[in-house]
Write a protein that binds this DNA or RNA. Structure first.
Length: 273
DNA sequence: CCGATTTGACCCCC
DNA sequence: GGGGGTCAAATCGG
């Protein structure tokens, strides 16, 4: 069966506008501003309309250390080596593309080989699958200023573009999520993970959970899944927060396919420590 | 067996 | 014509 083909949409150059902001360092997904691309025409099935260049479509760019932390469930559908780029470009589309005719897709491309590396994430179309975008943590990996410990800051940035598209009800229900819990995780030279919790008083010890060998629930520093009442059958959104998907375990924090390790670890071919 | 990922091929835009 | 986005068959893994 032929996949739905995308109709050419009026161009709106979010990419230019948002790239100018150079939001490097924030892991938050910069979803399209209010009044964005909702109301997209349903795909029409002209056999060849699907393979349009991105310029034809609404897109916006986010620079992040954590390209997978955006609160949605993505399915990879392609990878290409890009000319003049040392890193391949990864193509993802919404996992609900077929189920809910959700056209959202994203491109992830590593931008550099820094430690941690940054990624350019280009989102195309907004989610229409009702798997409501969850405020993403602002995860900032800070190189060791003193000593040899990396700091992972969750919720450190001042603003979330993605809250703009929440309606009032959602905003209310995301109240806890936008209170910006703050935690710093650091490794010392003995590979011990330390957390410096700075949660609001009612926040559970998420960092302790992150350091726990079992680590079942996602840390509250990460955006919680939306409450069931707001989910339109989107209960499986929880899979987005599978701790193994994000590589969070007792030994290291792996975000966006990259493992944050203490300096004395061998960050070599297999990140062996 | 089913869903996700990989990867080469196809196709469109620049 | 080349680069880049997508498709879809093959493969993998649970």
């Amino acid at each position: 069966m032929a996949s739905p083909r995308l109709k050419r949409e009026q161009s709106f150059d979010f990419e230019e506008a948002i790239s100018a902001q150079e939001a490097v360092g924030s892991a938050s997904a910069s979803y399209s501003p209010s009044g964005g691309a909702f109301g997209i025409s349903p795909p029409e099935s002209s056999p060849r309309d699907g393979r349009k260049r991105r310029k034809d479509r609404t897109s916006w760019v986010n620079h992040t250390f954590t390209p997978h932390f955006d609160g949605h469930l993505w399915r990879k559908y392609g990878q290409k080596n890009i000319k003049d780029s040392a890193f391949p470009r990864l193509y993802y589309r919404c996992s609900y593309r077929d189920d809910r005719q959700c056209l959202a897709s994203k491109l992830v491309q590593q931008e550099n080989d820094d430690d941690p590396p940054t990624f350019k994430v280009t989102y195309t179309y907004e989610h229409t699958c009702n798997s409501m975008p969850v405020p993403t943590p602002d995860v900032v990996a800070e190189p060791p200023a003193t000593g040899d410990a990396y700091l992972l800051r969750f919720g450190s940035a001042a603003g979330h573009g993605d809250t703009q598209q929440m309606d009032q009800r959602e905003r209310q229900q995301h109240h806890t999520a936008v209170r910006r819990p703050f935690v710093m995780l650091s490794f010392d030279s003995n590979r011990n993970l330390h957390e410096q919790p700075a949660f609001p008083s009612d926040q559970p010890a998420a960092a302790a959970a992150a350091a726990s060998p079992s680590f079942t629930p996602p840390p509250r520093a990460l955006p919680p899944p939306p409450p069931p009442s707001t989910m339109n059958g989107g209960d499986d959104l929880f899979s987005t927060w599978d701790p193994f998907r994000y590589g969070l375990n007792d030994d290291h924090a792996q975000i966006g396919g990259h493992i944050y390790l203490p300096d004395n670890c061998n960050v070599g071919d297999d990140n062996y420590c």
